[in-house]
Write a protein that binds this DNA or RNA. Structure first.
Lengths: 175, 175
DNA sequence: ATGGTCATGTAACAGGTTACATGATTAT
DNA sequence: ATAATCATGTAACCTGTTACATGACCAT
Protein backbone atom coordinates (compact mmCIF):
# COMPACT_ATOMS: atom_id res chain seq x y z
CA UNK A 1 0.00 0.00 0.00
CA UNK A 2 2.57 2.50 -1.06
CA UNK A 3 1.36 3.73 -4.42
CA UNK A 4 -1.47 5.36 -2.55
CA UNK A 5 1.00 7.36 -0.49
CA UNK A 6 2.97 8.32 -3.57
CA UNK A 7 -0.25 9.56 -5.15
CA UNK A 8 -1.26 11.47 -2.03
CA UNK A 9 2.12 13.20 -2.03
CA UNK A 10 1.80 14.08 -5.69
CA UNK A 11 -1.73 15.39 -5.17
CA UNK A 12 -0.64 17.54 -2.23
CA UNK A 13 2.01 19.11 -4.45
CA UNK A 14 -0.76 19.84 -6.96
CA UNK A 15 -4.39 18.66 -7.35
CA UNK A 16 -4.53 16.72 -10.62
CA UNK A 17 -6.36 14.31 -12.87
CA UNK A 18 -5.41 10.66 -12.99
CA UNK A 19 -3.87 11.25 -16.38
CA UNK A 20 -1.65 14.03 -15.10
CA UNK A 21 -0.61 11.87 -12.16
CA UNK A 22 0.41 9.07 -14.48
CA UNK A 23 2.68 11.44 -16.42
CA UNK A 24 4.04 13.13 -13.34
CA UNK A 25 4.73 9.78 -11.72
CA UNK A 26 6.92 8.78 -14.65
CA UNK A 27 8.90 12.00 -14.51
CA UNK A 28 9.28 12.49 -10.77
CA UNK A 29 9.60 8.94 -9.52
CA UNK A 30 10.26 7.21 -12.83
CA UNK A 31 13.94 6.98 -11.89
CA UNK A 32 13.10 4.16 -9.58
CA UNK A 33 9.45 3.29 -9.92
CA UNK A 34 6.72 3.09 -12.52
CA UNK A 35 2.94 2.96 -12.14
CA UNK A 36 0.55 2.26 -15.00
CA UNK A 37 -2.53 4.39 -15.51
CA UNK A 38 -4.74 1.40 -14.74
CA UNK A 39 -3.14 1.07 -11.36
CA UNK A 40 -3.44 4.78 -10.69
CA UNK A 41 -7.14 4.92 -11.54
CA UNK A 42 -7.75 1.88 -9.37
CA UNK A 43 -5.99 3.40 -6.38
CA UNK A 44 -7.66 6.79 -6.88
CA UNK A 45 -11.02 5.02 -6.82
CA UNK A 46 -10.12 3.25 -3.60
CA UNK A 47 -8.86 6.38 -1.94
CA UNK A 48 -11.99 8.30 -2.97
CA UNK A 49 -14.09 5.54 -1.41
CA UNK A 50 -11.99 5.68 1.75
CA UNK A 51 -12.49 9.44 1.97
CA UNK A 52 -8.79 10.24 1.55
CA UNK A 53 -9.28 12.22 -1.64
CA UNK A 54 -12.13 14.11 -3.26
CA UNK A 55 -12.96 13.64 -6.94
CA UNK A 56 -14.55 16.62 -8.63
CA UNK A 57 -15.84 16.67 -12.18
CA UNK A 58 -14.14 19.54 -13.87
CA UNK A 59 -16.97 21.85 -15.06
CA UNK A 60 -14.95 23.87 -17.59
CA UNK A 61 -13.91 20.77 -19.50
CA UNK A 62 -16.77 20.84 -22.01
CA UNK A 63 -17.84 17.43 -23.23
CA UNK A 64 -14.57 15.96 -22.11
CA UNK A 65 -14.81 13.95 -18.97
CA UNK A 66 -12.20 15.02 -16.52
CA UNK A 67 -11.95 14.46 -12.79
CA UNK A 68 -9.66 16.49 -10.61
CA UNK A 69 -8.57 14.90 -7.37
CA UNK A 70 -7.52 16.69 -4.21
CA UNK A 71 -6.40 15.41 -0.81
CA UNK A 72 -8.86 15.56 2.10
CA UNK A 73 -7.98 15.91 5.78
CA UNK A 74 -8.18 12.12 6.27
CA UNK A 75 -5.70 11.63 3.43
CA UNK A 76 -3.29 14.14 4.92
CA UNK A 77 -3.55 12.38 8.25
CA UNK A 78 -2.96 8.97 6.72
CA UNK A 79 0.10 10.23 4.86
CA UNK A 80 1.53 11.79 8.04
CA UNK A 81 0.99 8.56 9.92
CA UNK A 82 2.72 6.58 7.19
CA UNK A 83 5.76 8.86 6.93
CA UNK A 84 6.52 8.42 10.64
CA UNK A 85 6.00 4.64 10.58
CA UNK A 86 9.11 2.46 10.01
CA UNK A 87 8.84 0.77 6.61
CA UNK A 88 8.71 -3.00 6.26
CA UNK A 89 12.02 -4.30 5.04
CA UNK A 90 11.20 -5.27 1.47
CA UNK A 91 10.23 -1.88 0.08
CA UNK A 92 11.51 0.52 2.73
CA UNK A 93 14.12 1.99 0.37
CA UNK A 94 11.61 3.00 -2.26
CA UNK A 95 9.16 4.17 0.38
CA UNK A 96 11.81 6.43 1.90
CA UNK A 97 12.06 8.45 -1.31
CA UNK A 98 8.34 9.11 -1.19
CA UNK A 99 8.56 9.95 2.50
CA UNK A 100 11.18 12.57 1.76
CA UNK A 101 8.95 14.16 -0.86
CA UNK A 102 5.95 13.95 1.45
CA UNK A 103 7.87 15.76 4.18
CA UNK A 104 8.71 18.54 1.75
CA UNK A 105 4.96 19.25 1.54
CA UNK A 106 3.80 18.37 5.04
CA UNK A 107 6.71 19.52 7.19
CA UNK A 108 8.96 17.43 9.48
CA UNK A 109 7.44 14.08 10.48
CA UNK A 110 10.39 11.83 11.19
CA UNK A 111 11.69 10.82 7.76
CA UNK A 112 15.27 11.54 8.82
CA UNK A 113 14.91 9.01 11.64
CA UNK A 114 13.74 6.50 9.05
CA UNK A 115 16.72 7.37 6.85
CA UNK A 116 19.07 6.76 9.77
CA UNK A 117 17.41 3.46 10.58
CA UNK A 118 17.88 2.32 6.98
CA UNK A 119 21.50 3.45 6.98
CA UNK A 120 22.09 1.20 9.98
CA UNK A 121 20.35 -1.73 8.26
CA UNK A 122 22.32 -1.32 5.05
CA UNK A 123 25.59 -0.99 6.98
CA UNK A 124 24.91 -4.29 8.69
CA UNK A 125 24.00 -6.00 5.45
CA UNK A 126 27.12 -4.65 3.74
CA UNK A 127 29.23 -5.89 6.65
CA UNK A 128 27.64 -9.33 6.29
CA UNK A 129 28.29 -9.49 2.54
CA UNK A 130 31.90 -8.39 2.99
CA UNK A 131 32.41 -11.08 5.61
CA UNK A 132 31.02 -13.69 3.22
CA UNK A 133 33.29 -12.35 0.49
CA UNK A 134 36.38 -12.59 2.67
CA UNK A 135 35.44 -16.07 3.87
CA UNK A 136 34.31 -17.66 0.59
CA UNK A 137 35.96 -15.76 -2.24
CA UNK A 138 39.47 -14.80 -1.25
CA UNK A 139 41.17 -17.98 -2.49
CA UNK A 140 43.62 -17.90 -5.36
CA UNK A 141 42.72 -19.46 -8.70
CA UNK A 142 38.92 -19.80 -8.43
CA UNK A 143 36.87 -21.90 -10.85
CA UNK A 144 34.59 -20.28 -13.41
CA UNK A 145 31.54 -21.21 -11.31
CA UNK A 146 33.13 -19.61 -8.23
CA UNK A 147 33.97 -16.45 -10.17
CA UNK A 148 30.33 -16.14 -11.25
CA UNK A 149 29.04 -16.74 -7.73
CA UNK A 150 31.43 -14.05 -6.61
CA UNK A 151 30.03 -11.70 -9.27
CA UNK A 152 26.53 -12.23 -7.89
CA UNK A 153 27.76 -11.39 -4.41
CA UNK A 154 29.64 -8.36 -5.78
CA UNK A 155 26.33 -7.17 -7.19
CA UNK A 156 24.93 -7.18 -3.66
CA UNK A 157 28.01 -5.41 -2.29
CA UNK A 158 28.13 -2.56 -4.80
CA UNK A 159 24.38 -2.07 -4.43
CA UNK A 160 24.75 -1.62 -0.68
CA UNK A 161 27.78 0.63 -1.09
CA UNK A 162 26.04 2.92 -3.52
CA UNK A 163 22.91 3.06 -1.40
CA UNK A 164 25.00 4.13 1.59
CA UNK A 165 26.92 6.70 -0.45
CA UNK A 166 23.63 8.22 -1.56
CA UNK A 167 22.17 8.12 1.95
CA UNK A 168 25.15 9.94 3.39
CA UNK A 169 24.95 12.66 0.78
CA UNK A 170 21.19 12.94 1.47
CA UNK A 171 21.13 12.87 5.27
CA UNK A 172 22.37 16.46 5.72
CA UNK A 173 19.48 17.69 3.55
CA UNK A 174 16.83 16.41 5.93
CA UNK A 175 18.45 17.07 9.27
CA UNK B 1 8.24 -16.15 -15.41
CA UNK B 2 11.71 -15.91 -14.04
CA UNK B 3 11.53 -17.80 -10.78
CA UNK B 4 11.06 -20.90 -12.86
CA UNK B 5 14.36 -20.27 -14.62
CA UNK B 6 16.11 -19.58 -11.34
CA UNK B 7 14.79 -22.90 -10.03
CA UNK B 8 15.83 -24.76 -13.18
CA UNK B 9 19.33 -23.37 -12.80
CA UNK B 10 19.48 -24.37 -9.16
CA UNK B 11 18.19 -27.87 -9.99
CA UNK B 12 20.77 -28.31 -12.73
CA UNK B 13 23.49 -27.49 -10.24
CA UNK B 14 22.01 -30.16 -7.96
CA UNK B 15 18.71 -32.13 -7.93
CA UNK B 16 16.89 -31.12 -4.77
CA UNK B 17 13.68 -31.01 -2.77
CA UNK B 18 11.56 -27.88 -2.69
CA UNK B 19 12.72 -27.30 0.84
CA UNK B 20 16.38 -27.41 -0.13
CA UNK B 21 15.69 -25.06 -3.03
CA UNK B 22 14.07 -22.55 -0.70
CA UNK B 23 17.17 -22.52 1.51
CA UNK B 24 19.62 -22.47 -1.37
CA UNK B 25 17.70 -19.64 -3.02
CA UNK B 26 18.11 -17.50 0.07
CA UNK B 27 21.84 -18.12 0.23
CA UNK B 28 22.78 -17.93 -3.44
CA UNK B 29 20.42 -15.27 -4.74
CA UNK B 30 19.27 -13.79 -1.46
CA UNK B 31 21.55 -10.80 -2.03
CA UNK B 32 19.06 -9.47 -4.51
CA UNK B 33 16.02 -11.70 -4.56
CA UNK B 34 13.89 -13.76 -2.24
CA UNK B 35 11.34 -16.48 -2.97
CA UNK B 36 9.01 -17.93 -0.36
CA UNK B 37 8.54 -21.68 -0.08
CA UNK B 38 4.91 -21.33 -1.13
CA UNK B 39 6.00 -19.75 -4.36
CA UNK B 40 8.64 -22.39 -4.94
CA UNK B 41 6.24 -25.30 -4.44
CA UNK B 42 3.75 -23.64 -6.76
CA UNK B 43 6.29 -23.19 -9.52
CA UNK B 44 7.71 -26.71 -9.07
CA UNK B 45 4.18 -28.06 -9.49
CA UNK B 46 3.70 -26.08 -12.68
CA UNK B 47 7.05 -27.10 -14.12
CA UNK B 48 6.34 -30.75 -13.33
CA UNK B 49 3.02 -30.44 -15.17
CA UNK B 50 4.76 -28.80 -18.12
CA UNK B 51 7.29 -31.63 -18.26
CA UNK B 52 10.27 -29.41 -17.48
CA UNK B 53 11.15 -31.24 -14.29
CA UNK B 54 10.57 -34.71 -12.88
CA UNK B 55 9.36 -35.19 -9.31
CA UNK B 56 10.40 -38.44 -7.68
CA UNK B 57 9.28 -39.64 -4.28
CA UNK B 58 12.42 -40.34 -2.36
CA UNK B 59 12.19 -44.04 -1.38
CA UNK B 60 14.78 -44.01 1.40
CA UNK B 61 12.98 -41.28 3.32
CA UNK B 62 10.96 -43.58 5.56
CA UNK B 63 7.58 -42.19 6.56
CA UNK B 64 8.75 -38.72 5.74
CA UNK B 65 7.36 -37.39 2.51
CA UNK B 66 10.09 -36.03 0.33
CA UNK B 67 10.13 -35.29 -3.38
CA UNK B 68 13.35 -34.81 -5.25
CA UNK B 69 13.15 -32.77 -8.43
CA UNK B 70 15.44 -33.01 -11.44
CA UNK B 71 15.50 -31.17 -14.74
CA UNK B 72 14.26 -32.97 -17.86
CA UNK B 73 15.40 -32.33 -21.44
CA UNK B 74 12.48 -29.97 -22.06
CA UNK B 75 13.49 -27.92 -19.01
CA UNK B 76 17.08 -27.71 -20.17
CA UNK B 77 15.88 -26.57 -23.59
CA UNK B 78 13.57 -23.94 -22.12
CA UNK B 79 16.37 -22.59 -19.95
CA UNK B 80 18.76 -22.40 -22.92
CA UNK B 81 16.12 -20.58 -24.95
CA UNK B 82 15.54 -18.11 -22.14
CA UNK B 83 19.23 -17.34 -21.53
CA UNK B 84 19.70 -16.31 -25.16
CA UNK B 85 16.52 -14.20 -25.27
CA UNK B 86 16.88 -10.48 -24.49
CA UNK B 87 15.15 -9.73 -21.19
CA UNK B 88 12.18 -7.38 -20.97
CA UNK B 89 13.26 -4.08 -19.51
CA UNK B 90 11.70 -4.21 -16.05
CA UNK B 91 13.49 -7.22 -14.63
CA UNK B 92 16.35 -7.72 -17.08
CA UNK B 93 18.96 -6.84 -14.45
CA UNK B 94 17.87 -9.52 -12.02
CA UNK B 95 17.38 -12.01 -14.82
CA UNK B 96 20.93 -11.43 -16.03
CA UNK B 97 22.34 -12.72 -12.75
CA UNK B 98 20.43 -15.95 -13.19
CA UNK B 99 21.50 -16.15 -16.82
CA UNK B 100 25.13 -15.96 -15.77
CA UNK B 101 24.64 -18.81 -13.32
CA UNK B 102 22.72 -20.82 -15.90
CA UNK B 103 25.57 -20.43 -18.37
CA UNK B 104 28.00 -21.75 -15.80
CA UNK B 105 26.06 -25.06 -15.91
CA UNK B 106 24.92 -25.16 -19.53
CA UNK B 107 27.88 -23.63 -21.35
CA UNK B 108 27.97 -20.45 -23.49
CA UNK B 109 24.55 -19.35 -24.73
CA UNK B 110 24.85 -15.60 -25.24
CA UNK B 111 24.65 -14.13 -21.74
CA UNK B 112 27.63 -11.86 -22.42
CA UNK B 113 25.73 -10.35 -25.36
CA UNK B 114 22.86 -9.68 -22.98
CA UNK B 115 25.26 -8.12 -20.49
CA UNK B 116 26.59 -5.81 -23.20
CA UNK B 117 23.08 -4.89 -24.27
CA UNK B 118 22.22 -3.93 -20.70
CA UNK B 119 25.42 -1.93 -20.32
CA UNK B 120 24.35 0.10 -23.36
CA UNK B 121 20.86 0.63 -21.91
CA UNK B 122 22.18 1.72 -18.53
CA UNK B 123 24.71 4.06 -20.14
CA UNK B 124 21.93 5.77 -22.03
CA UNK B 125 19.76 6.05 -18.95
CA UNK B 126 22.65 7.47 -16.93
CA UNK B 127 23.31 9.99 -19.69
CA UNK B 128 19.65 11.03 -19.61
CA UNK B 129 19.64 11.45 -15.83
CA UNK B 130 22.85 13.50 -15.93
CA UNK B 131 21.36 15.74 -18.61
CA UNK B 132 18.29 16.29 -16.44
CA UNK B 133 20.53 17.03 -13.47
CA UNK B 134 22.52 19.63 -15.39
CA UNK B 135 19.37 21.21 -16.80
CA UNK B 136 17.18 21.27 -13.69
CA UNK B 137 19.44 21.16 -10.66
CA UNK B 138 22.53 23.23 -11.32
CA UNK B 139 21.12 26.55 -10.06
CA UNK B 140 22.55 28.23 -7.02
CA UNK B 141 20.51 28.44 -3.81
CA UNK B 142 17.82 25.80 -4.42
CA UNK B 143 14.70 25.55 -2.26
CA UNK B 144 14.25 22.66 0.16
CA UNK B 145 11.74 21.04 -2.21
CA UNK B 146 14.22 21.31 -5.10
CA UNK B 147 16.99 19.82 -2.98
CA UNK B 148 14.79 16.82 -2.17
CA UNK B 149 13.77 16.36 -5.80
CA UNK B 150 17.45 16.46 -6.63
CA UNK B 151 18.11 13.77 -4.00
CA UNK B 152 15.56 11.51 -5.69
CA UNK B 153 17.28 12.03 -9.03
CA UNK B 154 20.67 11.42 -7.40
CA UNK B 155 19.33 8.07 -6.22
CA UNK B 156 18.70 7.16 -9.85
CA UNK B 157 22.14 8.39 -10.89
CA UNK B 158 24.16 6.52 -8.26
CA UNK B 159 22.13 3.37 -8.94
CA UNK B 160 23.04 3.51 -12.62
CA UNK B 161 26.67 4.32 -11.87
CA UNK B 162 27.05 1.41 -9.51
CA UNK B 163 25.32 -0.97 -11.88
CA UNK B 164 27.73 0.04 -14.63
CA UNK B 165 30.75 -0.29 -12.33
CA UNK B 166 29.66 -3.81 -11.46
CA UNK B 167 28.93 -4.69 -15.09
CA UNK B 168 32.37 -3.59 -16.19
CA UNK B 169 34.06 -5.62 -13.49
CA UNK B 170 31.90 -8.62 -14.50
CA UNK B 171 32.13 -8.45 -18.30
CA UNK B 172 35.70 -9.85 -18.50
CA UNK B 173 34.57 -12.92 -16.55
CA UNK B 174 32.09 -13.98 -19.21
CA UNK B 175 33.91 -13.04 -22.36
C1' DA C 1 7.68 -33.65 26.51
C1' DT C 2 9.23 -29.67 24.13
C1' DG C 3 11.13 -27.16 20.56
C1' DG C 4 13.71 -26.97 16.34
C1' DT C 5 14.37 -28.48 11.77
C1' DC C 6 12.81 -31.06 7.68
C1' DA C 7 9.12 -31.24 4.49
C1' DT C 8 4.88 -30.15 1.84
C1' DG C 9 1.10 -28.05 0.88
C1' DT C 10 -3.93 -24.94 0.49
C1' DA C 11 -6.46 -20.58 0.42
C1' DA C 12 -7.29 -15.81 0.38
C1' DC C 13 -5.86 -11.62 -0.92
C1' DA C 14 -3.08 -7.60 -2.60
C1' DG C 15 -0.45 -5.63 -6.23
C1' DG C 16 1.10 -5.37 -10.94
C1' DT C 17 0.67 -6.42 -16.05
C1' DT C 18 -1.66 -6.97 -20.34
C1' DA C 19 -5.46 -6.62 -23.24
C1' DC C 20 -9.49 -4.42 -24.47
C1' DA C 21 -12.50 -0.43 -24.96
C1' DT C 22 -14.31 4.27 -25.62
C1' DG C 23 -14.51 9.01 -26.89
C1' DA C 24 -13.22 14.17 -27.06
C1' DT C 25 -9.81 17.59 -28.47
C1' DT C 26 -5.93 19.41 -30.99
C1' DA C 27 -2.40 19.81 -34.33
C1' DT C 28 -0.84 18.78 -39.18
C1' DA D 1 -8.91 13.34 -42.87
C1' DT D 2 -5.69 11.49 -39.75
C1' DA D 3 -2.75 10.92 -36.02
C1' DA D 4 -1.40 12.27 -31.57
C1' DT D 5 -2.67 13.51 -27.17
C1' DC D 6 -5.97 13.96 -23.39
C1' DA D 7 -8.85 11.29 -20.50
C1' DT D 8 -11.06 7.33 -18.13
C1' DG D 9 -12.10 3.09 -17.34
C1' DT D 10 -13.14 -2.73 -17.17
C1' DA D 11 -11.58 -7.49 -17.04
C1' DA D 12 -8.54 -11.26 -16.96
C1' DC D 13 -4.63 -12.89 -15.36
C1' DC D 14 -0.18 -13.61 -13.03
C1' DT D 15 2.86 -12.96 -9.13
C1' DG D 16 3.92 -12.33 -4.46
C1' DT D 17 2.51 -12.19 0.44
C1' DT D 18 0.22 -13.73 4.53
C1' DA D 19 -2.23 -16.92 7.11
C1' DC D 20 -3.34 -21.46 8.03
C1' DA D 21 -2.39 -26.44 8.34
C1' DT D 22 -0.14 -30.92 8.83
C1' DG D 23 3.17 -34.26 10.23
C1' DA D 24 7.81 -36.82 10.73
C1' DC D 25 12.31 -36.77 12.79
C1' DC D 26 15.85 -35.39 16.15
C1' DA D 27 18.20 -33.42 19.99
C1' DT D 28 17.86 -31.97 24.96
Amino acid sequence: MSIQHALLTSLLEKPSTGYELANRFDHSMGYFWHASHQQIYRELGRMAEAGWVLAEDDPNAGNRRKKTYQVLAAGRQELSRWVAEPGSSNNADQALLIKLRAEAVLGPLGASRELQRLIELHRQRLQLYRDIERRDFSHADPSQAQRLQHAVLRRGIVTEESWLAWAEETLPLVQ
